[in-house]
Design a protein around this nucleic acid. Structure first.
Lengths: 342, 342
DNA sequence: TGCCGCATTGTGAGCGCTCACATCGCGATG
DNA sequence: CATCGCGATGTGAGCGCTCACAATGCGGCA
């Protein structure tokens, strides 16, 4: 490892080389008017030769703008929107700092994390499905820096971009009902998670509307293995059911495994609907009927909104709502087998 | 959105409040000796009241140290080591900037990306399974900043942390051979990827050792759907085989689907071995025999090594090699069915 | 009593960039 | 010909922190 950093050229180095003042160089670099054509040429030449580029830290110090955003990811919400967010941040000219936050429930832990990078960043993107912090609390934690919450409660009065979980779940239940299912079970996600909560509540209200048994519900934690365990518990209840609505695809995958072990076929014996449409969903056996969330669009909207909050003070506080879409594959089928269970 | 950032207290604000010079405050904050006990107390009191914290950008400007690392992720290598790297970076007191790089083959694109953050970061972690850049080329691109390459060729003479793909593949093939398989096919990853390449080469040399047919090999691109397609192609070859070695778990999942559609049972008709041991592997039907790579350890070693390169100039250039482990589940079984194919 | 040493505290310069303002020169105008 | 306007360029201060060095004060020792 060459242990000496290569010394970067500064504004003054360029100025010396071009035989002008550093201010003139600054004007050229920042494309300000009132620079003679030949002067500009000489300066640009020097910039090229010295491979000059402005020192970001110095710019931050003087302007207060860093063109760095921070993505704070809370447990469980991992992974999915990240690639899209990285992509779009770059697209909008921002660098992304990514922070994982295990203990999302401790306000002090959040505060400590945000403090570390506080003066370095222009805004925050919080993937925070735990609706335990009010707008005011978040604003205080973010110390007045703009922020956008990704995936929080529908109707939360804060800058946010969300999927309408109700819409997705409604489609899924109606799909099952249209196929003739009336004994529909649910494997929900962790109910302190607002997505899981919204999906669960919608399922309950749909259950009421269609006269389904709303007690046929167990909770997992969104991980594959919890879906496996939840399906086992569901089977152990001794209640008959012909379809299962699962809180996300990973748990659905675990549930498929549990049904397989129990000698139950999907979709012949049980129809299964997932949520998310993760990459592998289409290649499970059987390919999973699920609710697709377009994370790329979520990512783009989130970054775009945050950037406009940063760059234009008139940007209003709003919630941008995206609508998921039911993708019907082969894990659901019209009811023709007898119910399993007792 | 409150549009005025909350003005941060500076060293001077604290100094004024405590009635000392900014230098004294600096000494207290940076825990230097030679400060009278009562002075220190007054200063700390003021620090607390004003919620002072040093301005990172100013520190970067004066010290040249930012305590920010950059993670550069090239296509395909997505996802897996990221959580561990984020976790350990934080653990070591560093903030992580994450950059995705689509076009890894263009040196100019890499250079442009690295330029953006060049003066802001202390070192780079490159998850770069394309061994197209020499140590010298990388050092030049990184402009003398320390870097560690995660997951490159075994034996590459550069600061790096890698899994021994040969070891993993050897275990997998020997497992199949021990079960009696001699007609073993391969679905490899994309061969410009050094992991895929190493696994493929090892498979070929193992094929030679055990007298297997090394032509029974098709390539995918590590994505689920390509595993599905590759398995179809394999079946279309008309050559009998009793086991498949797959380049990663996602493709194995796709292959399982293809076999299912072709009416072939796993493991009764075909044994399948994956690679990676992703979370869902244990819950597929059947649970997948695979080679586990401990990404958490990879992440920790990478960050730890990079940090020591940054903080201790005497740290030698080395390659840290980790060994993957075969996890036997139910997708492989002793040969007792007749070969499929023609 | 004078001087040294050391603990304690303060000063000044500078990192590289930004920005308000000052200066200079030249052609146009009354 | 004095004056104005404005294009082109330069100066100075300051962002907040770091660090080398200077200054102050007090006890101890010859």
């Amino acid at each position: 490892m060459p242990d000496s950093q290569i010394k970067q050229a500064t504004l003054r180095d360029v100025a010396d080389m071009a035989g002008v003042s550093y201010q003139t160089v600054w004007r050229v670099v920042n494309e300000h008017p009132h620079v003679a054509v030949d002067t500009r040429e000489r300066v640009l030449q020097a910039v090229r030769v010295l491979d000059y580029r402005p020192h970001r830290a110095a710019q931050v110090l003087t302007t207060g703008r860093s063109y760095i955003l921070q993505l704070v990811i809370f447990e469980y919400a991992y992974g999915d929107p990240l690639p899209a967010i990285l992509h779009w941040a770059r697209e909008f000219g921002y660098t992304m700092v990514v922070t994982e936050l295990k203990d999302a429930t401790s306000t002090e832990a959040v505060r400590a994390t945000l403090r570390e990078t506080a003066q370095m960043i222009d805004g925050l993107l919080m993937v925070m499905p735990y609706p335990h912090l009010s707008y005011e609390a978040l604003a205080e934690l973010c110390q007045g820096r703009p922020f956008v919450v990704v995936n929080t409660e529908l109707g939360a009065k804060m800058p946010s971009v969300v999927f309408d979980q109700r819409h997705g779940t409604r489609q899924a239940v109606e799909h099952l009902v249209a196929l003739g299912h009336r004994l529909i079970a649910e494997i929900s996600g962790p109910l302190d998670n607002c997505d899981a909560q919204a999906r669960h509540e919608t399922w309950m209200s749909m259950a009421e509307r269609y006269g389904l048994d709303a007690r046929l519900s167990v909770a997992g934690d969104f991980e594959t293995c919890s879906g496996y365990g939840a399906a086992k518990r569901l089977l152990g209840l001794g209640q008959p059911f012909t379809a299962v609505l699962v809180g996300n695809d990973l748990m659905a995958l675990g549930a498929l495994r549990a049904f397989d072990e129990a000698g139950l076929r999907v979709p012949e014996d049980i129809s299964v609907v997932g949520y998310d449409d993760v990459d592998v969903a289409a290649y499970l056996s059987p390919p999973l009927t699920t609710v697709r969330q377009e994370f790329d669009i979520l990512g783009r909207e989130s970054v775009e909104y945050l950037v406009s909050l940063i760059e234009d003070a008139r940007t209003p506080i709003q919630q941008r709502v995206l609508y998921p879409e039911l993708i019907v594959r082969q894990s659901t089928r019209s009811l023709n087998a007898s119910p399993v269970g007792v």
